[in-house]
Amino acid sequence: MANKKTNIPFSGTAEQETALRAAIGELKGEKGSLIAILQRAQEIYGYLPIEVQTIISDETGIPLEEIYGVATFYAQFSLNPKGQYQISCCLGTACYVKGAGDFFDKISDELGIGSGECTPDGKFSLEACRCIGACGLAPVLTVNEDVYGRLTQDEVNQILAKY
């Protein structure tokens, strides 16, 4: 397994850390509060890097591996920050049969990142999502609020070039 430590340098601020410690202080007494703490941490930082999970471990006494196990179990938690431009590539049934899998791989190769990851410059993040309700436009992807449908392989570079 590749080391999953994110390639984006951590840039948490003192304010964020204060907010995180306050949230942990408020929640840690309750049984089963880890998920709530992780949700708050993700609200504060946008993602859950090792620096944030280590603070949670030190403050709660919950082993770091246990926290990481929970963070990687639930799809709602991310180990990587979101990019300035968030690409969501639909891999729902309709898009998939229209070749969205190859399409996703092409973007992934082009940006050098996998699903759930962010480019080192923080510009793009990539995610495979399920049906976004635009099956008529399959295969479809979104970049932030922009929707691109009926895509062909060679359009990938054109779309990325716009940002």
Partner: peptide
């Protein structure tokens, strides 16, 4: 590792078919 030893450096990471035993952040 967890119950007898309270060392807790290994656990289950990811889910479904990707579930595997590992350390935090796949160290």
């Amino acid at each position: 590792c967890c119950a007898w030893q309270s060392v807790s450096v290994i656990g289950t990471n990811d889910r479904g078919f990707d579930t595997h035993i590992g350390c935090a952040f796949e160290k």
